[in-house]
Amino acid sequence: MTVGDIIGGGFRLLRERIGAVLVWAVLYLGMNGILALTMRPLLHDMVALQRGTGSSVAPTALPGVMSQLSVLNLGMLLLVIVLYAAGLRAAVRPQESRFAFLRLGFDELRLLGVGAVLAILFTVAWLTVLMIATFLIALLSVASPIAGVLLAIPVVITVVALSVYLQVRMSLIFPLTMLRRRIALGEGWALSKGHFWTLFGAYFVIALIVMVAFTAVSSVTLAPYFADLANSHFSREALQLAQQHQLERQFGTIDARTILGWLLAAAAGAFWIALGAGALGTAAMGLLHAEFDDIGSIYE
């Protein structure tokens, strides 16, 4: 299993399951459109308040508006989970292709549970390391401020490196949970053992590809905003005015640029899901096959 194999698996899923990916993009577009249209009145009033032209929203109505936005954000999160589960299902259980691999059941619930558990474990580990590091830096700074500053540099590097290491080592838990139809915390951690650099290299390249894709989308949809920033000379008033103009463009009249932005964002979102899930599934399946081959060779 090489970096190229993992990346190629992501593009292979994108190429071979293009119909499903298009369905994912349509769902992503629909949810983004609903979210944007719901937020439009609230943000329109925020722009009006900034310009001093008044607002049609009573203060007592704001809790209801925020509750509605919270429900929509929860719906967006649920959609992302369903879409990512569909991507993983396409990668590790390709025979279940009906309905564009989309389901809403125990697979999605298990992935949500795995994500919650890993987020808690990761946060606890990160905070523990950070608290110990902060204590040591503060203790050393009492004796020598310069020594405390010098110690802070390797500590920050260590914390970042630990975060990356844990995320890479835990990454295969998701495709294995989809494959096994049970939460596979231990198996996912064990399967990634000895393959950190291969996995890290593949994920790094994929992150760069996705970043380029979203940057390309932003360059089209946010071109006027970037132009305002370039002409602002980074003065406070000009930056605030550029932000206000961007809000007016984004939540004003729905025009061709707005629709183009929604379409490109949906395409980029589906591309990210297919590429990421395909790469994870390819890595998990490839390492499983290699492990079985190694075990089988012992008995030959």
Rank of each mutant, 00 (worst) to 15 (best):
P145D: 10
V155K: 00
L139I: 05
E237V: 09
G115E: 07
D293L: 12
A125I: 04
Q243I: 02
A290T: 07
F271Y: 06
V3N: 09
A268D: 04
R51A: 14
L140H: 05
L49A: 11
V168L: 02
M211L: 13
N73V: 11
V124L: 14
L172I: 02
T158I: 07
M76I: 08
E291R: 14
A161F: 08
Q243K: 14
L263T: 13
L208R: 04
G276K: 00
A284Q: 01
L288H: 08
L102Q: 05
V129Q: 01
N73F: 07
A25L: 02
S171W: 00
F234Y: 14
S297V: 02
P175M: 01
P145G: 07
L136H: 10
G194F: 05
G54L: 06
G194C: 06
V23C: 10
L37F: 12
V149K: 10
A284R: 01
D293M: 08
D294I: 04
V57G: 10
G4Q: 13
V205R: 01
I298K: 13
A125M: 13
L112D: 01
F174A: 00
L74Y: 14
G286Y: 08
T60N: 14
A277K: 00
M211V: 05
A266N: 12
M131K: 01
A256M: 09
G296T: 10
L222Q: 14
E248Q: 15
I273R: 00
R17K: 13
Y225K: 06
A119R: 05
A86T: 07
I295R: 10
W272G: 12
F174R: 00
V205Y: 04
M170I: 01
Y203D: 03
G201M: 04
V220W: 15
L179S: 00
T38R: 09
T134K: 01
S163R: 06
